[in-house]
Structures are given as structure tokens and as C-alpha cells.
């Protein structure tokens, strides 16, 4: 896509530049150490502030008749709480704060990333993989702690014919280990692709020359359309990540089919 732009309008635009991790204070080329304050740090901190703004400040009045902000906070709470309760059952409720943390963080990071010029932390595989594998290891350890060796019955589909069970067990085992990968790449891939496409359309919108009269309005329309889609995707991906976490948690709590 970038090459087309190069040949077509004689423009240079770099849809992936928005994802570059760079020190907040200093030049792009400066080294990024573990503790360096980068644009990642800034936007993660903003996600924390957004979380506090969304769930803490709005509820400070503790009104019985909620304000608009408090309604949103209660809605988010009820949404995730019901999801955890529906998917994992009553005994999954005690893991609700962890799942709420994931949901709110992903939601805030996704929506903050939609602000023009923003850095989208959830578009980075390093970020989503930490969460994906974190969920994977937590759920696996929890499964063994809660059920002992019988947790392995998750892979032994007792409702299938006996001859098929070993094959199914192999498939189940593979799918189990693929989970964290798909879990994290799904989120990062969605966010990255959407933002890259936005940038591509935005690049086309600055085309000059003969075709500009057609290309520019179409690309602006494209930006608007993709942006609307991204708003939807931002929420849906947060939802998908959260509900999959709940499903994995349910497997750990009730491994028997």
C-alpha cells in the first residue's frame, strides 16, 4: 500500500511510524532502556488516568440516583460483572477484579489510541502478549491448583467415542497452547491494522495533482468510515479479550466437559 502511494502521488507516508516506541524526552534515535520514559509510558499513564476518571471520579458522589458519568461507571461494572458471572459461574466472581482490570485497561488504551496523534499501546504485540500469556499461565496454574491432575481431563473429551479420544486430546492440547498466541495477536493485530489503514487513507487525503479532486474526498470519507469502524473494533476487541479470558478461566475452574 505504501508503495502505491509512492508511485501514485509522489508522496511519502509511513503508516507504521505511529507505532515507533521512542523516548518522550529526546530524539527518536536515542536508546530505549527498560526504565526510559517513552511514549509508551505516557499513554499507559493516560490509560491509568482515564481509568481513574472513568471509575473513580465519576462515582465520588456515590449518588443513589446516578449522574451521567456514574451511570457509565456502573454500566461498565455491571457489564463485566455479569460477563464473569455468566461465563465462569458463581465461583469465578472472586477473579472479577483481575478481569475488570484487563477489560478497563484494554478499553481505555484502545479508545485513547483513537485520539489523533496518539500512540496505541494495545497495538504492540509486546503489550498484548504480556496479558495473553499472563492469562494463560495464571489460568493453567489455577487449573492445576484447583483440580490437581484431573485438570488434564480438559483434554480428554469423554463424550467422544473412545477411538477418537487420543486424537481429540492431541488437537485439544495444541489448541490449548495456541490460545495465548491467538489471544494476544488478535488484539494487537486488530488495533495495528485499523490504525495503519487510517494512516494510509490519511496519506491519500493529502494527494495533490490531477486526480486530487477525486482521491481526496474519497480518502477523507475512507478515514471517517474506518475511524467509525475502529471505534467499534476498540470496544469489541476489549470485549473479546475479556470474554475469552472468562472462558479460559471457566475451563480452569470446571475442566470437565
Amino acid at each position: 500500500m505504501a508503495d502505491e502511494a509512492h508511485s501514485g502521488g509522489g508522496l511519502e507516508f509511513h503508516p507504521m511510524d505511529q507505532f515507533i516506541v521512542k523516548p518522550l524526552f529526546g530524539e527518536i534515535g536515542d536508546p530505549v532502556h527498560m526504565y526510559t520514559i517513552t511514549n509508551v509510558t505516557l499513554w499507559l499513564a493516560l490509560a491509568v488516568l482515564a481509568t481513574i476518571g472513568l471509575l473513580v471520579l465519576t462515582t465520588s458522589k456515590r449518588a443513589v440516583v446516578p449522574s451521567r458519568g456514574q451511570s457509565v461507571a456502573e454500566l461498565a461494572y455491571g457489564f463485566v460483572y455479569k460477563m464473569v458471572e455468566d461465563v465462569t459461574g458463581k465461583d469465578g466472581i472472586k477473579y472479577f477484579p483481575y478481569i475488570m482490570t484487563l477489560f478497563i485497561f484494554i478499553l481505555c488504551a484502545n479508545f485513547l489510541g483513537l485520539i489523533p496523534m496518539a500512540f496505541t499501546t494495545t497495538s504492540h504485540i509486546a503489550v498484548t502478549a504480556v496479558m495473553g500469556f499472563g492469562v494463560f499461565f495464571a489460568v493453567t496454574i489455577l487449573g492445576f491448583v484447583k483440580n490437581g491432575v484431573s485438570f488434564l481431563s480438559l483434554f480428554w473429551v469423554s463424550s467422544a467415542p473412545l477411538a477418537l479420544r487420543p486424537i481429540l486430546a492431541l488437537i485439544e492440547l495444541i489448541s490449548y497452547f495456541v490460545r495465548p498466541v491467538s489471544h494476544s495477536i488478535r488484539l494487537a493485530g486488530n488495533m495495528m491494522a485499523g490504525h495503519a489503514v487510517l494512516k494510509v487513507f490519511a496519506g491519500f487525503a493529502q494527494v495533490t495533482g490531477g486526480m486530487a479532486l477525486i482521491i481526496v474526498p474519497v480518502s477523507i470519507l475512507g478515514v471517517v468510515a474506518v475511524y467509525a469502524l475502529e471505534v467499534l473494533v476498540s470496544f469489541i476487541q476489549a470485549y473479546v479479550f475479556t470474554i475469552l479470558t472468562c472462558v479460559y478461566l471457566k475451563d480452569a475452574l470446571h475442566p470437565h466437559h
Binding site: 515507533i20 530505549v32 527498560m34 517513552t38 504480556v130 496479558m131 495495528m192
Partner: peptide, 16 residues
Amino acid sequence: MPQLDIGTFDNQVFWL
């Protein structure tokens, strides 16, 4: 892809 720049991973993971 900046996403695959392993040099920034420790920074991202740390802050995350």
C-alpha cells in the same frame, strides 16, 4: 514493524 523491535520490549513490558 516497530512491533517487532525486540529492543523496546523490556521497556514496554516494564511500564505495562
